[in-house]
Amino acid sequence: MADTWTVAIISGVAASAVTAVVTWYVERLKLRTEFRVESAIRLLLKHDKYRSRSFDKIKSHIPGYHDDELRRMLLRAGAICFNAPNGEFWGLVKRNKSHLRAGPQQAE
Protein backbone atom coordinates (compact mmCIF):
# COMPACT_ATOMS: atom_id res chain seq x y z
CA MET A 1 0.00 0.00 0.00
CA ALA A 2 2.85 2.37 0.83
CA ASP A 3 4.45 1.60 -2.52
CA THR A 4 1.24 2.61 -4.29
CA TRP A 5 1.18 5.96 -2.49
CA THR A 6 4.84 6.56 -3.23
CA VAL A 7 4.36 5.85 -6.92
CA ALA A 8 1.28 8.09 -7.01
CA ILE A 9 3.11 10.97 -5.32
CA ILE A 10 6.19 10.66 -7.55
CA SER A 11 3.98 10.47 -10.65
CA GLY A 12 2.03 13.54 -9.57
CA VAL A 13 5.17 15.57 -8.89
CA ALA A 14 6.73 14.50 -12.19
CA ALA A 15 3.57 15.37 -14.14
CA SER A 16 3.39 18.76 -12.45
CA ALA A 17 7.03 19.48 -13.24
CA VAL A 18 6.64 18.51 -16.90
CA THR A 19 3.48 20.63 -17.20
CA ALA A 20 5.23 23.63 -15.65
CA VAL A 21 8.22 23.35 -18.00
CA VAL A 22 6.06 22.95 -21.11
CA THR A 23 3.85 25.90 -20.09
CA TRP A 24 6.88 28.08 -19.45
CA TYR A 25 8.37 27.18 -22.85
CA VAL A 26 5.14 27.84 -24.76
CA GLU A 27 4.66 31.22 -23.06
CA ARG A 28 8.26 32.14 -23.83
CA LEU A 29 7.75 31.35 -27.51
CA LYS A 30 4.53 33.36 -27.55
CA LEU A 31 6.24 36.41 -26.00
CA ARG A 32 9.17 36.11 -28.39
CA THR A 33 6.80 36.07 -31.35
CA GLU A 34 4.89 39.10 -30.06
CA PHE A 35 8.15 40.98 -29.53
CA ARG A 36 9.21 40.25 -33.11
CA VAL A 37 5.85 41.39 -34.46
CA GLU A 38 6.07 44.64 -32.49
CA SER A 39 9.58 45.19 -33.83
CA ALA A 40 8.33 44.62 -37.38
CA ILE A 41 5.49 47.09 -36.80
CA ARG A 42 7.93 49.74 -35.54
CA LEU A 43 10.16 49.17 -38.55
CA LEU A 44 7.18 49.44 -40.89
CA LEU A 45 6.00 52.67 -39.26
CA LYS A 46 9.50 54.22 -39.23
CA HIS A 47 9.75 54.14 -43.02
CA ASP A 48 11.17 57.48 -44.23
CA LYS A 49 8.58 57.87 -46.96
CA TYR A 50 5.44 57.27 -44.83
CA ARG A 51 4.54 58.89 -41.51
CA SER A 52 1.47 56.70 -41.20
CA ARG A 53 0.08 53.57 -42.83
CA SER A 54 -3.43 52.31 -43.43
CA PHE A 55 -4.56 49.48 -41.23
CA ASP A 56 -5.19 47.35 -44.31
CA LYS A 57 -1.60 47.88 -45.51
CA ILE A 58 -0.18 46.96 -42.08
CA LYS A 59 -2.44 43.90 -42.01
CA SER A 60 -1.15 42.82 -45.43
CA HIS A 61 2.45 42.99 -44.16
CA ILE A 62 1.69 41.25 -40.85
CA PRO A 63 -0.79 38.46 -41.60
CA GLY A 64 -2.13 35.85 -39.22
CA TYR A 65 -3.66 38.08 -36.53
CA HIS A 66 -7.25 39.14 -35.95
CA ASP A 67 -7.91 42.86 -36.31
CA ASP A 68 -8.18 43.53 -32.57
CA GLU A 69 -5.01 41.55 -31.81
CA LEU A 70 -3.12 43.56 -34.41
CA ARG A 71 -4.47 46.82 -32.99
CA ARG A 72 -3.25 45.85 -29.51
CA MET A 73 0.20 45.12 -30.95
CA LEU A 74 0.20 48.47 -32.73
CA LEU A 75 -0.54 50.20 -29.43
CA ARG A 76 2.22 48.27 -27.65
CA ALA A 77 4.62 49.27 -30.43
CA GLY A 78 3.92 52.95 -29.71
CA ALA A 79 1.45 53.69 -32.50
CA ILE A 80 -1.70 55.77 -32.46
CA CYS A 81 -4.77 55.55 -34.65
CA PHE A 82 -6.07 58.27 -36.96
CA ASN A 83 -9.54 57.83 -38.39
CA ALA A 84 -9.84 59.46 -41.79
CA PRO A 85 -12.67 59.48 -44.33
CA ASN A 86 -10.73 56.96 -46.42
CA GLY A 87 -10.01 54.55 -43.56
CA GLU A 88 -8.07 53.84 -40.41
CA PHE A 89 -4.42 54.98 -40.34
CA TRP A 90 -1.71 54.22 -37.80
CA GLY A 91 1.55 56.00 -37.07
CA LEU A 92 4.14 56.22 -34.32
CA VAL A 93 3.45 58.87 -31.69
CA LYS A 94 6.98 60.26 -32.07
CA ARG A 95 6.46 60.90 -35.78
CA ASN A 96 2.88 62.20 -35.61
CA LYS A 97 2.80 64.66 -32.71
CA SER A 98 1.56 67.38 -35.06
CA HIS A 99 -1.61 65.36 -35.68
CA LEU A 100 -2.51 65.13 -32.01
CA ARG A 101 -5.15 67.53 -30.78
CA ALA A 102 -4.94 69.03 -27.33
CA GLY A 103 -7.54 67.68 -24.94
CA PRO A 104 -9.76 69.83 -22.73
CA GLN A 105 -7.87 72.19 -20.47
CA GLN A 106 -7.90 71.36 -16.79
CA ALA A 107 -9.13 74.03 -14.42
CA GLU A 108 -6.53 75.29 -12.02
Rank of each mutant, 00 (worst) to 15 (best):
I10L: 01
I10T: 15
I10W: 06
I10M: 11
S11R: 01
G12W: 04
A14E: 09
A14F: 06
A15S: 13
A15P: 05
S16L: 11
S16T: 15
S16C: 08
A17Q: 06
T19M: 03
T19W: 08
T19L: 09
V22C: 11
T23N: 07
W24E: 01
W24N: 08
W24H: 13
Y25Q: 12
Y25K: 10
V26R: 01
E27R: 12
L29Y: 11
K30D: 06
K30L: 13
L31T: 03
R32H: 00
R32K: 02
T33P: 00
T33V: 12
T33R: 10
T33F: 13
E34S: 11
R36C: 05
E38L: 05
S39T: 15
S39H: 13
S39N: 15
R42V: 11
R42I: 13
R42K: 02
L43Q: 11
L43A: 14
L44N: 03
L45A: 08
L45T: 10
L45G: 01
K46I: 07
K46N: 06
K46E: 12
H47G: 14
H47S: 12
K49E: 12
K49H: 14
K49F: 11
Y50N: 10
Y50W: 09
Y50Q: 04
S52D: 10
R53S: 06
R53A: 05
S54D: 10
S54W: 00
S54C: 08
D56R: 08
D56G: 08
I58S: 01
I58C: 04
K59N: 14
S60A: 12
I62R: 02
I62D: 06
P63Q: 12
P63M: 13
G64S: 08
G64L: 14
Y65C: 00
Y65K: 08
Y65H: 03
H66W: 14
D67F: 09
D68Q: 10
D68E: 13
D68P: 03
E69V: 08
E69M: 01
L70Q: 03
L70Y: 08
L70H: 00
R71M: 09
R71D: 04
R71S: 08
R72A: 06
R72N: 00
M73V: 00
L74G: 01
L74D: 05
R76W: 00
R76L: 04
R76A: 01
A77P: 04
A77N: 09
G78M: 13
A79E: 09
A79R: 02
I80M: 05
F82I: 03
F82P: 11
F82T: 07
A84C: 12
P85L: 10
P85W: 03
P85R: 05
N86M: 08
N86P: 08
N86L: 15
N86A: 05
G87F: 11
E88I: 04
E88M: 02
E88S: 11
F89I: 15
F89D: 02
F89K: 03
W90L: 14
W90C: 10
G91E: 02
L92V: 04
R95G: 06
R95P: 07
R95S: 07
R95N: 03
K97D: 15
K97R: 10
K97E: 11
K97A: 09
S98P: 07
H99E: 12
H99Q: 09
H99D: 07
L100H: 01
L100W: 01
R101M: 14
R101Y: 12
R101L: 00
G103Y: 00
P104F: 15
Q105F: 12
Q105W: 09
Q105G: 14
